[in-house]
């Protein structure tokens, strides 16, 4: 099962580091990263592999979101199917 993590917020030092730390804690590997700065806003999409995740999806999601809240950016994780499904038959 793959997940998509989206990160949007004011650029600052250490965002990738902070997100990656949560991934390491949950044994989630990164398969693809796309990242850019749009008018001072950090925008990143990560495709992650959840197959060997340690712990529940729910707590993993909460952990990412609370990290986002700490530094005032939006960090979300959703299952990948929703993105593929909505744009293809």
């Amino acid at each position: 099962m793959n997940g998509i993590i989206t990160v949007v917020g004011k650029d600052q030092v250490g965002i990738i580091h902070g997100v990656s730390k949560v991934l390491v804690d949950y044994n989630v590997s990164v398969e693809d990263i796309n990242q850019t700065i749009l008018k001072g806003y950090f925008t990143m999409m990560m495709r992650v592999n959840l197959a060997n995740m340690k712990g529940e999806f729910n707590t993993f999601k909460q952990k990412l979101e609370s990290y986002g809240e700490e530094i005032d950016i939006s960090v979300k994780v959703q299952r990948e199917e929703i993105f593929n499904y909505m744009h293809n038959i």
Binding site: I4, T6, V8, D32, N34, T43, M45, R47, K76, I82, F83, N84, M86, H87
Partner: peptide, 12 residues
């Protein structure tokens, strides 16, 4: 890049 665009479109 298509996935990237799709992802942010869906999120929006």
């Amino acid at each position: 890049m298509t996935l990237y665009n799709n992802v942010f479109e869906t999120v929006r």
